[in-house]
Every structure is written in C-alpha cells, then in structure tokens.
C-alpha cells in the first residue's frame, strides 16, 4: 500500500514542488496545509505516515504545530523543511522531535533520500 504524506507549507509553489516529488516516488498525498493550525487538524483527520513541515508559516509555525502533534501522537514522523541560514530553528525542531530535515532549495534526490530514510525507521 502506498505510504501517506501530509504536506505543510504556506507557499503554493513549494507545495506543488513537493507534491510532484512525492507523487513521482509513489506516495499518496492525503492532504495539504498552509499553516500550523491546518496541519494539526489535517493530521488528526488523516493520520498520515509522514508530515513534511515548513518551519516559518503564518498563524502557527511548524515547530509549534509539530509539538502539538507529537503531544497527542508521539509516534508521528515529522520532517521539517527550512531555508538555508535558519540552522538554529532546524536544531530546535530536531530537539523537539523532528526525525530529519530538508534545506531549501533542495533537489528531488535529496528529498527522496530523507523521506525514504525516515519512512524506513
């Protein structure tokens, strides 16, 4: 059965980019969210295998959203996505429980390596 992913990013462009990469790799995109609040809601509705989470977003940022998700589902698998130069935020996210991270700009291969690695456990 295809693995299920939730894509969270406030930029339509980034969501499209990620959607194409995940689809090409045979993943099932169960939902997309534009901010942290939507992400939490979609996570509980869909229970995906993986969340690709942008860090800087309006309404609620990725780190807070991830913390909320992990507090109800400690087994949640979250990969954070962030621009170069935000290393301290990425580290904060890892401390808070993110399994891995992707740095923008990224290549298809980089994203695939990370998601396959975390999906394998």
């Amino acid at each position: 059965m295809a693995k299920r992913v939730l894509i969270v990013d406030d930029a339509l462009f980034m969501r499209t980019l990620l959607r194409d990469i995940f689809t090409a790799a045979g993943w099932n995109i169960v939902a997309e969210a534009e901010n942290g609040l939507q992400a939490i809601e979609q996570y509980h509705l869909q229970q995906p295998d993986l969340v690709s989470m942008d860090i800087v977003m309006p309404e609620m940022g990725g780190i807070d959203a991830m913390k909320t998700i992990l507090s109800t589902d400690p087994a949640a698998v979250v990969v954070v996505c962030s621009a170069l130069g935000q290393e301290s935020m990425i580290m904060e996210a890892i401390k808070a429980g993110a399994k891995d991270f992707i740095v923008k700009p990224f290549s298809d291969a980089q994203v695939l390596e990370v998601i396959e690695r975390v999906a394998a456990g």
């Binding site: 170069l84 290393e87 990425i90 580290m91 890892i94 401390k95 399994k99 891995d100 991270f101 740095v103």
Partner: peptide
C-alpha cells in the same frame, strides 16, 4: 552539506 549543525544533531539522535 548545507546545514552541518542540524545534520550532526540528526545523526546524534
């Protein structure tokens, strides 16, 4: 590797 700090942190975990 673009973000060595976070990468090392992931490896540590």
């Amino acid at each position: 590797v673009a973000a060595p700090g976070p990468r090392l942190l992931v490896l540590l975990k």
